[in-house]
């Protein structure tokens, strides 16, 4: 029997038998070289546009960066030590956490409720299609539209809030007590649909036998939800929350348009502060240090997410 046949490993994926080549091909230089060449262009391009900037970032964070003739000078970790006493930096992390948590709270609870309703609605297809629309809008356009809706002289949502007696005569984005709610509302409007989609995908995969067994044991629908449905949804919710958290690190387009971090820095979440430090004040060294803290947290979140990717319960096909 040939070597290749013995070492080929068979795995089940999506119910089908797949023969993987890897082990068989390891000892065949020709095949290896072929795959290597196939992989190289992408790897080289990625290395140039990601690794190189990453090391440059580390370099910058250790220097006083001068774009003029003086050049970069070593400054004994001053960029790093100053972070501890930088109130806006600490506050930025805190606000980012607060902003993300508020968004998650509303998006996840709304998302679960709507997915449960939609799952048994006969209009599911149509309604989901409509609900998806906000996700397709560029965040910066969404920001502009909501800026218009919230405007204190001609915004319809401002008018509505006033007519309902909310807020008094303040405008939601203009007051530092409410501005955070303003940006949360926009995020909830745009991204609740994603949670609906993910939860719906999860609901289709709640094992029916467990539900039935539980009902035979006398559980009602509410009991069924908490003891069977919710635990089964858990991996889906975790993925949803992690993805949204990382997106809140990535996308500040809407916030830049809506408040720019104001009023009185009440919406200056860390990425917005970083934007200011690097692109308004051009403190590139300090910006690099802040950017690295942001990157490290992102990478940790990413590692957790990748672990979840390997969870078969979320990726196996629902048609089974």
């Amino acid at each position: 029997m040939t070597d290749a046949f013995v070492s080929a490993k068979a795995v089940f994926r999506d119910g089908g038998l797949v023969i993987d080549e890897p082990a068989a091909m390891r000892n065949k230089p020709l095949a290896n070289r072929f795959y290597f060449y196939l992989m190289m262009p992408a790897i080289i391009v990625l290395a140039c546009i990601t690794l190189y900037p990453f090391f440059w970032l580390i370099f910058m964070s250790l220097h006083k960066v001068d774009m003029g003739a003086a050049g970069d000078t070593w400054n004994n970790f001053k960029n790093w030590t100053r972070l501890g006493s930088d109130r806006k930096f600490v506050q930025g992390w805190w606000l980012l956490l607060k902003y993300s948590s508020l968004c998650m709270l509303f998006e996840v609870s709304l998302g679960i409720m709507l997915a449960l309703i939609l799952n048994r609605s006969k209009w599911e297809k149509l309604l989901v299609t409509v609900f998806l629309m906000p996700m397709m809008m560029a965040p910066v356009i969404a920001g502009l539209v909501w800026y218009y809706l919230f405007n204190s002289t001609f915004g319809w949502y401002h008018w509505l809030m006033q007519s309902l007696g909310i807020l008094g005569d303040k405008s939601i984005l203009g007051d530092k007590a409410t501005a955070m709610w303003g940006i949360v509302i926009v995020d909830v409007w745009q991204w609740t649909p994603l949670i609906i989609l993910i939860v719906l995908a999860g609901l289709k995969r709640v094992p029916r036998d467990q539900l039935e067994a539980n009902m035979v044991d006398g559980a009602g629908e509410i009991r069924n939800f908490f003891s069977i449905t919710l635990p089964n949804l858990y991996p889906f919710l975790l993925i949803a929350v992690l993805l949204r958290f990382m997106d809140n690190f990535r996308f500040i387009d809407a916030i830049l348009v809506l408040t720019g971090g104001g009023p009185a820095n009440s919406t200056k979440i860390l990425p917005t502060y970083l934007f200011d430090v690097s692109f308004t004040f051009f403190k590139l060294g300090r910006g690099a240090a802040i950017a690295l803290t942001l990157l490290v947290v992102t990478i940790i979140l990413g590692m957790i997410l990748v672990k979840l990717f390997e969870n078969p319960s979320t990726t196996k096909s629902s048609e089974a």
Partner: peptide, 11 residues
């Protein structure tokens, strides 16, 4: 996953 703002300067 990397935040765009973070890598924008070196890029």
């Amino acid at each position: 996953m990397a935040p765009v703002v973070a890598v924008m300067v070196p890029l």
